[in-house]
Design a protein around this nucleic acid. Structure first.
Lengths: 405, 405
DNA sequence: CATGTTTATTTCATGTCGTGAAAGAAATCG
DNA sequence: CGATTTCTTTCACGACATGAAATAAACATG
């Protein structure tokens, strides 16, 4: 039995479309302030329908009209001026959690998709038992709930972004942050707080957040490759996040470059990640250069930046390391392109810092691997990694899932 | 301006769902004769709605009630007996064409998704110019139309299955059967016959036809790998055929196994196809065994069967060839699984004849390449290649596209 | 064999949703 | 100021899905 929010659902038993009201909210969330006419054009609905939908949503407090900004708007012409509509951030709120190795972050998400200040806590995540993990998460969430301002609106759910494989939006099958396996983290938290809770792969979150940006709206087939300690990917296929029906995240980092290549820390050989991941670059660099020998699995941002700088300044060993990484990345992407032919591949994550060093070899590998017709089908470009979009992504997902407006 | 058939469309500008009437027809096409109650359960609609929909479709002649089959039905219990409903094959018809190297096949397709007798004609396809190709296709189609029985029903469209890359369901970007590039074959034929015409990749057709089988209904993420002269794949993601928005078919055969491996006839190195394709197996076999040296690119079925028999009988060279092919296939599939995690991968095509010889090496390669959590996510199994499903697939596609009932 | 029970299907009144047409509102233009 | 343009709302209507009730067609049973 599903609880119905103020916005009712059509007779399509979860089988496809969201309700029109949901689509309106989503459009406004993605495109920012929007006039009703433009909303109509975007959703291919008549002005009459838009008018009716928005007036309901305005009355219920999910939307609000943007106050005139004093000076004349830019695109002011003849005719009745547009009245822009935007989301009311205080219409609802949710709790967003990010679980990575040795660290849990929590923040509030608002109805407009924004995130509040982040509370981070260090944990020895690898040593946590299931109960401890759930207690830790739960207490942080409880703290965040206690700290919610009165203006935050109705609390509508909890979303948890986790590094690793997630099944059914609830169970962590495997995570590099945990020793635990097969823990359902969503259900106990949902029970404790009496709220819907979902878990989601962190790369998927980021892909979702990135696609939110308006210049990517039109792109329905998008791969977001995240370079960092490991190599992850979020896949948007046909406008929707692809988490194979199993709910497994895509594991681009563990596709193969050289079948008898070096050992990846997943225990297999020749994974892309074992050439492109930070830990791989740093491991190889250490063996050839004189670099500090710290936690081998997690080189710090400073260490990686130093290595990148070395390559930028032309140091032959560093240059060749990045060249090899670029080549592996290129071959990995070539498989992705051959199998899926996305319109666009964005390369991001902290590892983009080395993208310039990798790019020539990557392009060359693509040339070698793909016939022109295939290669020209997909654009590949880097995307600055200026802010962590994980929390933003999980907020969007919770907002999208919520049956309630 | 879109022409409306007897079945009108909802206000969702091609944006998702088909109309309910379409869904009913599709359900009946897939599941065969069905009682109204069961249709309702399947489509999650109320009996009232189903009753109304089916009575319209019956009146319009798209559906018909299955006559009582004399003897008592198997599942006969208490209560009013079910009345089964099936498609009326004569409600409409279409022309299905299959274009492969040196051969064009044409057949009639009926409204139930069945195909009529196939007319095949030999052509020197590689030497055809665009006009000649269109003329050849057109004349064959015209002949088939002339031969339509009076009972065939309204002619609703033309579908052409082509080996190669198709853009926008109309343009052949590249095909191994043609020297031509970038020919729009759909538009001229549509114009000549005044009918909707679509072109489609042959592997996609087969995938579509295979998924039609009722035991695969529930599987929404399915890859169908076709082994043959080349290695193709049809991909069904989230219940829909995936032809990246570009309309490009998936090119599994040209993902990489060994980046500096042998030259594939696509001009790149180390493609799966250059290990697993018939031509690759036969080429390598010829260099080691004493086999007839015929058209190297297209070994005959007899030659391939002989080679397979050789391996079955334990001939070490042949055995090792298939073992290597299995290994390449396994690594290729491992990438597919890592990237997409489909629920099921079916291996079929004429090349399945060698599956038993390849399977152990393939499984071992998968073990080597994938962590258990990923590997156990996807089932891989062979599928008998007993009939060519290409025409059936294109028929289904035309029926599905048609706006008309 | 009449009557009850069970299951399938249809009928009917109702509610929701999206729409076109027309009216209304709010600006600029001349 | 009235004319024009553009945006928004109002209103009556049609299409569609539904629940409830009626109807239909079998079997079960005493």
């Amino acid at each position: 039995m599903r609880k119905d929010g103020p916005i009712s659902e059509r007779g399509d038993g979860d089988h496809g479309q969201r309700s029109s009201a949901q689509r309106v909210l989503q459009a406004v969330r993605r495109h920012g302030p929007l006039a009703r006419v433009d909303l109509g054009a975007l959703l291919e609905m008549s002005p009459a329908s838009i008018s009716s939908l928005t007036s309901d949503l305005l009355r219920e407090g999910f939307l609000r009209e943007v106050p005139e900004s004093g000076g004349a708007e830019p695109g002011r012409g003849r005719g009745r001026p547009k009245v822009l509509i935007e989301l009311a951030p205080e219409a609802a709120c949710m709790i967003a959690v990010k679980l990575t190795i040795n660290r849990i972050e929590v923040a509030r998400g608002d109805f407009a998709g924004g995130t509040g200040p982040v509370t981070a806590r260090a944990f020895n995540t690898l040593e946590l038992g299931a109960d401890e993990l759930l207690a830790a998460l739960g207490d942080l969430i409880a703290g965040e709930i206690a700290a919610l301002p009165a203006s935050a609106g109705r609390l509508m759910g909890i979303g948890i972004a986790v590094q690793g494989l997630i099944h059914g939006a609830a169970t962590i099958i495997w995570s590099p942050a945990l020793s635990l396996r097969h823990v359902n983290i969503a259900a106990p938290l949902a029970a404790r707080f009496g709220l819907p809770a979902i878990a989601m792969n962190d790369a998927d979150c980021i892909a979702l957040a990135i696609r939110q940006h308006s210049e990517l709206q039109a792109i329905d087939n998008l791969a977001v490759v995240m370079l960092g300690t490991g190599v992850g990917m979020g896949l948007i296929i046909d406008g929707k996040l692809h988490a194979a029906s199993s709910g497994l995240g895509a594991e681009f980092g563990h596709t193969k470059y050289q079948i008898d290549g070096p050992l990846c820390h997943c225990g297999r050989r020749g994974c892309i990640e074992s050439f492109v991941g930070d830990y791989a670059l740093y491991r190889d660099a250490r063996s050839m250069l004189d670099l500090p020998n710290t936690d081998a699995l997690h080189p710090s941002e400073e260490q990686m930046q130093a290595l990148t700088d070395l390559a930028e300044s032309g140091h032959p060993v560093a240059v060749s390391l990045f060249r090899q990484a670029g080549r592996a990345l290129g071959y990995g992407l070539s498989n992705l392109i051959a199998l899926l032919g996305p319109d666009l591949i964005l390369v991001t994550g902290s590892g983009v810092r080395g993208f310039r060093q990798m790019e020539p070899a990557m392009r060359q590998a693509l040339d070698e691997a793909l016939v022109d017709t295939l290669r020209s089908q997909t654009e590949i470009r880097p995307r600055a990694w200026d802010e962590d979009l994980t929390l933003r992504g999980i907020v969007l997902q919770v907002l999208g899932e919520a049956r309630t407006g």
